[in-house]
Each structure stands twice: as structure tokens, then as C-alpha cells.
Design a protein around this nucleic acid. Structure first.
Length: 585
RNA sequence: GCGCCCGUAGCUCAGUUGGAUAGAGCAUCAGGCUUCGAACCUGAGGGUCGGGAGUUCGAAUCUCUCCGGGCGCGCCA
């Protein structure tokens, strides 16, 4: 609908009498918007206001000229010039009937578009370190990323979904050490647990798996393990302590033994994360390992490229990247004094590789605490000759859990934190995804467990699902009365849908493609949630105002065609959100 | 100190490529089920869009400044 109006206005501008406009306006100058108030018609454009200044005309005068030049169109009943110089479009009821027929024709494909023109987009999300179970913050990133992937895919982008596994580096070593220590406990050794180790309960099952696999093979006496270690926190340095402990572990069980502990821990954690996400309806096309990146030589290639461009220098034994030349606030180390490459080095290599794979746009979904990292990765891409604006980062603000108004403390290193799995099991997947998605991602989220679980009218989760189920219920009732829905007759009789609620429902339905497009362009799944709520509201209001199953067959079928259209659009939207559309509840 | 995000109704939040009278939900109050599911609907009250200044036909939206909050500023990942 909107696009057709844009074409109309463009045609009108080209039809204007000579001399009215100094130059031909760009098509992008034409903005057609839904009106807020139905008194202003269905759509409006401010194009006359925008062009008035350059044309040295009064906005209303220009608007009148544009209206006069508009070609006739079956969608448009009438137009008017209003306010400061807005042009309002009133659509024919036929325009909306047509849209309803389209919904019935396209079914689950209704709303899809070619906006993205098949542009290849790499969407990376979650990418949590496999050093522990996913927590509620990751859950928000998962819900957002998976839904954004669905939405972008629906409007014609070619989306690849990726999870980047940070399986290289010190954090993994610390996890392996933590597993080994818990394993020693299972063996019967008594020793203190390091302050900087992973203290969560989830480490114990890893240790049990290890014990089941290797028996007492990796057992070493506690006294030997602890001999001559520096003092741990709070008195000593926890970093120095854990480093010494990890060196000791490698001495005692060998590099191979340590690797075995690490691999087992990693495999178990990843399996847990994958299962958790799969149960949450969050899938990926590729799980990509940081270690594989290093093994493939990609990091060396990226560094060589930077070196060739003259973007590296040596100082204090380390290799630095001149990030400040590309807008970052300070230069960054890529190779440490000890010869090890930094996480940042593998990260720019990773992003370079995405580009080399042919992705035109790279979207990263990250926790809000990563915002400092955007400038440096972009700088890295630019230094390697890639356009800086191909990288887009969507930061997800933090989640605070509440239980009945009381905030639940969280922290990954602490023994106690709420995992995504626990959250899902307590409130259910549907409520979980809905609550994650109902707020703008750049807004901190207060997630109230009691509210998400409640089956009262305070809980917004069921509102949309209920509208969907209600339509299903009507169809059951229809069958119970031994009546049958005649789609052809219904769609042929939509001229009977003249009530104000019916008009409101038709109007709301026709907005779905626009709502979907807006959610995609703004990377804002929450706007789709809001749209679906409004559509559900229109349905509920209509339901309370009118009987659908009436004796007049034409009217009955027209009304059923309408509410089935609502059900279809609700289902399409909920599916994109990853929320189920139940037939009954 | 520097950087990013944010401040909208009693509460939780929409609304930001500048548009017409700033909107929802919850809470409060008043109504609606012998009729397709009341997990619903209808109506009412409730606002210096954090303060101030600027840009212009027009600002919650853009700019500056101040106040208040969150998060970052490692040869960690």
C-alpha cells in the first residue's frame, strides 16, 4: 500500500507544471507515513513541507498543486490538504478488502518482502564463553539475535547465524584447572578452591565425567599440588595464584593430561549451551571456534595485512596496532611481550574472515559492557582495507531479575547465579522470549519472575496468544453448529465489513508488512511485539462488539475471513518472535 | 577524568531518518458475561517528555550546557 502511494506521489511531482520546483526531487524526499489520527486519513505525506523552502512556495500552495497532479488510483478514495501543508490520503474500503484477500492467499508468507534484496548478512549473537552455563543476560541476547535473524530473513536478507566460541586463551585454562581441582576433591583430596577459579556448581558434574572417564589417573596428592604456591586472595594476588596453580597442574599431569581435562570441560559446556539454546528455539548455522581460526593461520594473515599497510609497530616488547589512526581512542596490543596474540588480534582476524567469506554486512549482538570494543574492531577492519560501516553492533542492555519486587543478585564467578535454563524452566519458553523481546534492546530490562509466571491480567504474555486461540475457538464453535466456512464467499463479501471495529481490524491487519519492515530496518523486534499487541487488541474489541457466527451466510463468512486473517498474521508474527501460537490455552 | 547508553503518567515502558491534540500496559475509579472463551471489552482521571538555552513553519526527537542514573576505559576474554 505504502509503496504504491510513494509511486503516486513521485508521479505527481514529475507531472507538476514547469517552474514550480527548481529541480527534480529525489525519490527519497518522499516519506509516506501512517496517520496517527483517522481524521487525517490512512496515510499522509509531508513532502510539500519539505520541498516548499527550496521551491520558494507556500507549503499549502505546493500541496494543492501536487494533489491536482496526482494520477487516479483505485486504492485512493480521496485526498486533502491539511494543517501546515500535509497531504492526507483516504483509501477506499476496497484497498483493505484486497489486503485481506492477499493475507488469505499468501498465508504464512504474508508480510515477507524483498527489502533486503538478498544482501548477505552475518549475524553473530550470544557467543558466550564456554566457561559456564548461559545466564539470563545471554538469554536476552539469544532471544534478540534469533528473532532479529528471523525478521531480517523475512524481509529478504540472506542471513547466516553464527556463534563464535572463545575456546582459546586463559579463561579456558582456568576452567580446566577448576575441573581438575573438583576432580581431586572427588578423588578424596582436600584442598582450597582458588578465589579466581570457576566456583559454580556446574563444574562438579564436569569433574565427575572426568573421574568416570580416567579414574584415578590424574590424581595427585594435595600436598604436592599446593607446595610452594604463592598466597591466594584476599591476602595475596588471585591472578598470580591461579597462574601458578595452572603451571603446577601442567607439571603434574603433563600437557596432555591438562589438555584432556580442558577438552572434556569444553565439550561438556558447549553441549550444555547448545542444548539450552536449542530448547529455547535459538539455532545457528555455524559454531565457529577461535582455536580453529588460529590453526587456520587467519590471525597471522590478518597481522601480515596490517603489517603490509604499515599499521603495526613495536614497543616495550609488544606489537601494537595503530588504532588511533582509525578513530579508536588508543592503540591496541596485538602480540604480547610473551609472544602470545591477544583476543583482539583473533577478533579482527575473525571479522576479516567474515568479509572474505563474502558477507556484505556484519552484525554483532553483544552485551552492553562490550561497547568499548566496537571502535577498535572497526578500526581493525578499516586498517585492513574494509569499509568501517560494514560492521554494525547492537548492544543489549543488562537484565535485572526480580522476584515479587525484590532484586536477585547475580555474578558469574559467584557460586550462585540464575541460569537461562532455570529461568526457562520456571517461567516457560514463551513467556521468557516474550519478556526478553517486549522492551527495546537498548533499555535495561527488569524481568519479574512472578509477573512472567502469573496467569492474571497483569501478564501481557497471554494477551496475543489468547487472541489467536480465540479465533481457533470460534472455528470450533462453527463446526459444533455444523456450519462450514466458505472462504470464497467471505472474501467476496468483505464489502459488508463496514462496522467501526471491522474497519479498525482491517486497518491494523494491513499494517503488518510495514511493522515487519520497520522492525527489520530499526533492528527492533520489540516494535513487532507492540504491533501484535495492537492487532490482538483490535480483535478482542471486535469480538466483544459483534457475533461472528450469524445466520446471514455472506456476513458470517466475511467476518470469519476477517478474523482468520487476524489469526494468520498473529501466527506469522509470533513465529518470528519464537513464541508459540496455541489453538487453545 | 574520558567514552557509550539512558532520563516520557503513581509504576513498567512505546514513540527519535524533526510533523498535526505525546500513547500503551499495570495500578485507581465507574461499567459490561442467559448470547462464538471475562486470560476479554468500554469509559474516566492521571504529563513543566530531567532543567535551561539554541536551530525552524514545526522539537520528546537535532545541537549546546547543566543535573541524575547504568556500563565501559588491561600486554583479560
Amino acid at each position: 500500500m505504502k509503496q504504491q502511494l510513494e509511486q503516486l506521489v513521485l508521479a505527481a511531482l514529475n507531472n507538476l507544471p514547469g517552474g514550480l520546483l527548481p529541480e527534480a526531487p529525489a525519490p527519497s524526499a518522499i516519506v509516506i507515513e501512517r496517520t496517527r489520527d483517522t481524521q487525517h486519513g490512512d496515510f499522509a505525506t509531508n513532502v510539500a513541507l519539505r520541498l516548499a523552502k527550496g521551491a520558494r512556495r507556500k507549503p499549502r500552495e505546493l500541496a494543492e498543486a501536487i494533489v491536482a497532479a496526482l494520477p487516479a488510483n483505485p486504492l485512493v478514495a480521496r485526498t486533502e490538504v491539511a494543517g501546515a501543508g500535509f497531504i492526507n490520503f483516504f483509501l477506499t474500503s476496497n484497498a483493505y478488502s484486497q489486503e485481506l484477500a492477499t493475507i488469505h492467499e499468501l498465508g504464512e508468507r504474508y508480510g515477507r518482502s524483498t527489502l533486503g534484496q538478498g544482501q548477505r548478512v552475518m549475524l553473530e549473537y550470544v557467543s558466550a564463553n564456554p566457561t559456564g552455563p548461559l545466564h539470563v543476560g545471554h538469554g536476552r541476547q539469544a532471544a534478540y539475535g534469533a528473532t532479529l535473524a528471523n525478521i531480517l530473513g523475512a524481509v529478504g536478507f540472506n542471513i547466516a547465524r553464527e556463534y563464535y566460541i572463545n575456546d582459546a586463551g586463559r579463561q579456558m585454562d582456568i576452567l580446566a584447572a577448576s575441573t581438575w581441582l573438583r576432580y581431586l576433591e572427588i578423588c578424596g583430596e582436600e584442598l582450597p578452591f582458588p578465589a579466581n577459579g570457576y566456583r559454580g556448581d556446574y563444574v562438579r558434574p564436569l569433574a565427575q565425567k572426568l573421574h568416570a572417564k580416567v579414574g584415578e589417573q590424574l590424581r595427585r596428592p594435595a600436598a604436592v599440588v599446593l607446595a610452594n604456591l604463592p598466597t591466594d586472595a584476599p591476602v595475596g594476588d588471585k591472578e598470580a595464584y591461579i597462574d601458578a596453580l595452572m603451571s603446577r597442574a601442567r607439571e603434574l599431569i603433563g600437557a596432555d593430561g591438562f589438555r584432556e581435562v580442558l577438552e572434556l570441560s569444553l565439550a561438556e559446556m558447549l553441549a550444555d549451551i547448545r542444548e539450552d539454546l536449542a530448547q529455547f528455539g535459538v539455532e545457528f548455522d555455524r559454531w565457529y571456534s577461535e582455536r580453529a581460526l588460529g590453526d587456520s593461520g587467519a590471525i597471522d594473515r590478518a597481522l601480515a595485512r596490517l603489517e603490509a599497510q604499515g599499521r603495526l609497530y613495536r614497543q616495550e616488547g609488544a606489537v601494537w596496532f595503530r588504532a588511533t589512526e582509525f578513530g579508536d581512542e588508543k592503540d591496541r596490543v596485538v602480540v604480547r611481550e610473551n609472544g602470545q596474540k591477544t583476543y583482539f588480534a583473533s577478533d579482527i582476524a575473525y571479522h576479516l574472515e567474515k568479509r572474505e567469506l563474502g558477507f556484505e554486512r556484519l552484525i554483532d549482538v553483544l552485551g552492553a559492557d562490550h561497547h568499548g570494543y566496537i571502535a577498535r574492531v572497526r578500526a581493525g577492519l578499516m586498517a585492513m582495507g574494509e569499509p568501517g560501516d560494514c560492521l554494525e553492533v547492537n548492544l543489549i542492555q543488562f537484565v535485572s531479575l526480580f522476584r515479587g519486587g525484590e532484586k536477585i543478585a547475580m555474578g558469574k564467578r559467584e557460586a550462585q547465579f540464575v541460569t537461562l535454563r532455570q529461568l526457562r524452566e520456571e517461567v516457560g519458553n514463551d513467556a521468557c522470549r516474550f519478556f526478553y523481546l517486549m522492551r527495546s534492546h537498548d533499555q535495561p530490562l527488569d524481568f519479574d519472575l512472578e509477573l512472567a509466571k502469573s496467569r492474571t491480567n497483569e501478564n501481557p504474555v497471554y494477551y496475543i496468544q489468547y487472541a489467536h486461540a480465540r479465533v481457533a475457538s470460534v472455528m470450533k464453535q462453527l463446526a459444533a453448529r455444523e456450519l462450514r466456512f466458505d472462504r470464497a464467499e467471505g472474501l467476496a463479501s468483505t464489502g459488508l465489513l463496514v462496522g467501526s471495529q471491522e474497519q479498525a481490524v482491517l486497518n491494523s491487519l494491513a499494517r503488518y508488512p510495514e511493522a515487519l519492515e520497520q522492525a527489520a530496518v530499526n533492528r527492533a523486534p520489540h516494535t513487532l511485539v507492540h504491533y501484535l499487541r495492537e492487532l490482538a487488541n483490535a480483535l478482542h474489541t471486535y469480538y466483544n462488539a459483534e457475533q461472528f457466527i450469524v445466520s446471514d451466510a455472506k456476513l458470517r463468512n466475511a467476518r470469519l475471513a476477517l478474523v482468520l486473517g487476524v489469526q494468520q498474521v498473529l501466527r506469522n508474527g509470533l513465529t518470528l518472535l519464537g513464541v508459540s501460537a496455541p489453538e487453545s490455552m
